[in-house]
Write a protein that binds this DNA or RNA. Structure first.
Lengths: 198, 198
DNA sequence: GATAATCTCGAACATCGTGTTCATTATCAT
DNA sequence: ATGATAATGAACACGATGTTCGAGATTATC
């Protein structure tokens, strides 16, 4: 009924996605050519272009699953009620968990030799989520909402990248703590607790 | 004496840089080909490759001037003494000023359709600077130094991008205020002043 | 001004990746 | 079984890259 019928297309698309993932792990996204992908997937050239406009399109299509998974996680976490009352930044731990699970892929996508396309896609997904969570709570009026949003997303990507490249042994929860610390408090002098100064 | 003699090479390099800048403003960095550059600069193809390995190399070489200019600005600002005592984040205003002066170029390089190479270059330059400034002051021990460094740089790029793309009318000093606010305080609940809660 | 060094030119070339076309073959849904 | 649809693979046009080389132009230096 729906569009998911024909087994042939499903098989082809699965093969192409698998090939892309293997290749990303093997040689990094940027270095991959369409030729590599169809060789690895053992699929005809014209077949590839019948499904996707290029490797970027193929990669992007892989993010739909992530988008949905995160949307559900957010709904589940924020199911407390209407707004964003459960936790300040409820999305972050779920996201770090997800990244921890597919650590190899994330590292290959997010690092220096990673895929800008992928990072942008992640940014876009996170922007939506953060916008919802931040819509209620209004903090500093000296800092416009848009830039606050971008700040949260940017910090997340920063911490994510640092984690995967420099401290892959850390647990998602530990990374999440660092993230929240930075986003909520910055790096300013300690904080309110009036610690001893001189 | 030094390497800067021959007027021919100087002329050629200047022409190529100028051509690259014009093209960046006209059609964005990614869309530019070497052919475009040498047409615009009216320079032979082999001549181009005698000087640079590609458009990326050409772009990168343009950042040396910036690197030096910023190093001087930092030395001048931090000339107070040995360490980083003058201001917490002394580099930021100088950098925003510089970006404000060459606003068109920066916007074309930093935006969505900008040049990853350029942003990476900016990141690298800033990392050096921030590392020096942050080496003395040790804040939160729960947040490792490396990630704090990346956090500052990342936030700078975020604010810079937002400024150039969404609020180009703002003055550098205003943007700088927002940047410092975010870096030092984050977006945490109001502040220490124990405002009325319920 | 003459000389030797060296920079520039431009055309030609090999190479590679892209994206399309089309007739043929294989697989699917029913 | 059969009509519909997907996959194949070879061929093609195109555009960009990076290199080579001999001839000519510009330069530094004496």
């Amino acid at each position: 009924m729906a569009g998911l019928t024909d087994r042939r297309t499903a098989r082809t698309q699965k093969a192409l996605h698998g090939a892309l993932m293997s290749l990303i792990l093997r040689k990094g996204y940027e270095a991959i050519t369409v030729q590599d992908i169809i060789d690895e997937a053992d699929v005809g050239r014209s077949t590839f272009y019948a499904h996707y406009t290029g490797k970027e399109d193929l990669l992007r299509s892989g993010f739909r699953a992530l988008r949905m998974e995160l949307a559900e996680a957010q709904d589940a976490a924020g199911a407390t009620s209407d707004g964003s009352r459960g936790e300040p930044l409820g999305f972050s731990l779920a996201m770090f968990d997800h990244a921890g699970e597919y650590k190899h892929i994330y590292r290959a996508l997010v690092g220096e030799r990673g895929a800008v396309v992928a990072v942008n896609e992640i940014r876009r997904i996170l922007s939506e989520i953060v916008r919802k969570e931040l819509s209620g709570a209004q903090g500093d009026e000296a800092v416009p909402g848009e830039v606050r949003n971008q700040f949260v997303v940017g910090t997340f990507v920063t911490v994510l990248t640092w984690w995967l490249e420099r401290r892959p042994k850390l647990a998602p929860s530990q990374v999440d703590t660092i993230f929240r610390r930075l986003v909520l408090n910055g790096i300013g002098p300690s904080r309110c607790d009036t610690s001893h100064q001189e």
